[in-house]
Design a protein around this nucleic acid. Structure first.
Length: 423
DNA sequence: TCTGGGGTCCTAGGACCC
DNA sequence: TCTGGGGTCCTAGGACCC
C-alpha cells in the first residue's frame, strides 16, 4: 500500500509552530512581493478568502485586525519540510517527497491492523517531533492514497487518517461523491470534456472504457482510470535531480534600467548555479527572460526571452553569470518598464557522467581549483546565510528586490533569529 | 498603486534518415 | 496518373501539479 502524508495548511502551520498566538485565528501567507494569498488557515478559508486573492483587496480586513497576513518565509518552510521527511524516514523504508508539504511513503507487508497502527503513528510522530499537523491517506495506488488523504482532511470523522482498499463499500461511496476535477492529475479542461460524455464523478470514470478514453484523450487519463481501480501505474520516483532549474522573481517596483536588470539576472543566475551544484549536475544551456507588467494595459508590453548554449557543460557560477548577462544584453530593449526577470538552466547532466569536451580550453589543472572555489563558496553561504559571498554587490534598495513587509524569523536556520523565550 | 514561483509529463508536427 | 514505409530526434505548447 502507498501512504500520502500531507501537512495541513503547511506554510501557516510552520508559522504557528513558532507563533502560537496565531493558533485559531484567520492567517494567510503571501506570495513573493506580498502579492497574493498562497496559503490559508482554516479560519481564513471559512471567511471566504480564495487562493490567489491579491493582498490589496484584503487591506480593509487587515487594518481592522480581523486577519493576519505574513510574507512567505521559504527558508523556514524548506527546513520544516526536511524535518518532516526525517521523521517519516524513521518510521518507513521508503519516502518519496512529492512537494514541499507532501510525501508518499511505502507501507508493505502489513495486515489491516498493523497498517492502521503504522499510519496512525506517522500522524502522531510528525506532530510530536515537528509541531506540524498532518493528514495521512493510504490506498493501493498513488491516486487512491491522494483521494484517501483528501477524505482524511475534509471529514473530521477520520481523525486525520483514512485508509482505502480498492474494493470496499466505503471506496465506492467516496468515488461516487468525488467530482472528476478533484481527482489527482485531472484538471478543469479534462473534466469539462468528460462531462460531455456523461462522466461526472470518479466512480463513472473508474468504470469507463480505459482504452477508448486513451485513444480520444491521453495515456494520462488511462493510467488514472487504472489507478482508480487499484492497479498501480505511477512509479515511485527515486531520482531527486531536477531536469530544469528555474529562478525568477517579480520586482518590488518596475524598472527598465540596465544596471538594475543586470543585477537581478546576476543574482538569479547565481542562485540557479547554487541549486545546480547542490543536485550535482551540470548545465549545457540557459534561458533568460524579462516580462513587463501584464496587468498594466496602459503600458507597452515586452516579454523577450532567449535560450543560449553555455561554452561547455558547467556548474561554475562565473560562466553561468557571464552567459546570462550576455543573453540579457541581447534581449533588453530600453523604454520598457520590466516587472519580472528569470534564469532557467537547461539540458542538465549528471556530474559523474560528464565527458570533457575536446573544445574545452580550460587548463586541466584549473578544474579542481574551480571546483574547490565553488565548494567553498557554497559552504560559506550555507553556514552563514545566502549571499554572504556573491558576485557583484547589488544596489541598496534596488527596485527589483522583493517587498516583504511582514516576514517572520528564520527560527531554525539562522542563529541570529532563534526564538526568544522570556522567563 | 497593489495579482507567485516553481516543476512534470505528454502530444503533435516538422526535419531528417534509410 | 501513379508517388513507401518505416524510424528518430527535437521543439513548442497544452495540461496539470503544489
Amino acid at each position: 500500500m502507498i501512504g500520502l502524508v500531507d501537512c495541513n495548511n503547511f506554510y501557516v502551520s510552520c508559522e504557528r509552530v513558532f507563533q502560537p498566538s496565531l493558533e485559531g485565528r484567520p492567517v494567510g501567507v503571501l506570495s513573493n512581493n506580498d502579492g497574493c494569498v498562497i496559503a490559508r488557515s482554516t479560519e481564513l478559508k471559512a471567511m471566504g478568502v480564495e487562493m490567489g486573492t491579491p493582498a490589496f483587496r484584503l487591506q480593509p480586513c487587515l487594518q481592522r485586525g480581523e486577519i493576519h497576513l505574513l510574507s512567505s518565509n521559504y527558508e523556514l518552510y524548506g527546513d520544516m519540510s526536511a524535518r518532516v521527511r526525517m521523521v517519516l524516514e524513521e518510521g518507513v523504508d521508503e519516502v518519496e517527497p512529492y512537494s514541499i508539504d507532501e510525501m508518499f511513503v511505502r507501507l508493505e507487508g502489513l495486515d489491516d491492523a498493523a497498517l492502521t497502527r503504522q499510519a496512525r503513528s506517522l500522524y502522531d510522530d510528525v506532530r510530536r517531533y515537528t509541531g506540524l499537523p498532518v493528514c495521512v491517506g493510504v490506498g493501493p495506488t498513488h491516486t487512491l492514497a491522494k483521494l484517501a488523504n483528501h477524505m482524511a482532511k475534509s471529514s473530521a470523522a477520520y481523525q486525520g487518517v483514512c485508509i482505502l482498499t480498492a474494493d470496499s463499500d466505503e471506496t465506492r461511496y467516496l468515488l461516487r461523491h468525488t467530482p472528476i476535477g478533484d481527482i489527482w492529475g485531472l484538471g478543469r479542461r479534462l473534466a469539462e470534456r468528460l462531462a460531455l460524455l456523461g462522466l461526472r464523478n470518479a466512480w463513472d470514470l473508474r468504470n469507463a472504457d480505459a482504452k477508448t478514453l486513451r485513444r480520444h484523450h491521453s495515456v494520462v487519463l488511462e493510467r488514472t482510470i487504472l489507478e482508480l481501480r487499484g492497479i498501480s501505474c505511477i512509479a515511485m520516483q527515486d531520482d531527486e535531480a531536477r531536469r530544469r532549474i528555474m529562478v525568477s522573481r517579480s520586482f518590488g517596483r518596475a524598472t527598465g534600467e540596465w544596471q538594475h536588470l543586470r543585477e537581478a539576472i546576476t543574482q538569479h543566475a547565481q542562485h540557479a548555479a547554487e541549486k545546480l551544484r547542490h543536485q550535482r549536475s551540470l548545465a549545457c544551456a540557459l534561458y533568460v527572460f524579462l516580462k513587463t507588467n501584464r496587468h498594466r494595459h496602459d503600458q507597452p508590453q515586452h516579454t523577450p526571452e532567449l535560450v543560449v548554449a553555455l561554452p561547455h557543460p558547467t556548474n561554475d557560477s562565473r560562466p553561468i553569470i557571464a552567459t546570462a548577462r550576455r543573453a540579457l544584453a541581447r534581449i533588453h530593449r530600453p523604454g520598457y518598464r520590466y516587472m519580472k526577470a528569470g534564469v532557467m538552466l537547461l539540458d542538465l547532466l549528471d556530474t559523474e557522467h560528464h565527458q570533457l569536451s575536446l573544445l574545452d580550453t580550460t587548463d586541466d589543472t584549473e578544474h579542481p581549483r574551480n571546483e574547490r572555489l565553488m565548494t567553498t563558496l557554497d559552504t560559506l553561504n550555507r553556514r552563514m546565510g545566502r549571499n554572504t559571498i556573491s558576485f557583484g554587490l547589488p544596489t541598496a534598495n534596488a527596485p527589483w528586490k522583493l517587498r516583504c513587509g511582514n516576514l517572520s524569523s528564520r527560527y531554525t536556520t539562522r542563529w541570529g533569529e532563534l526564538l526568544k523565550v522570556k522567563a
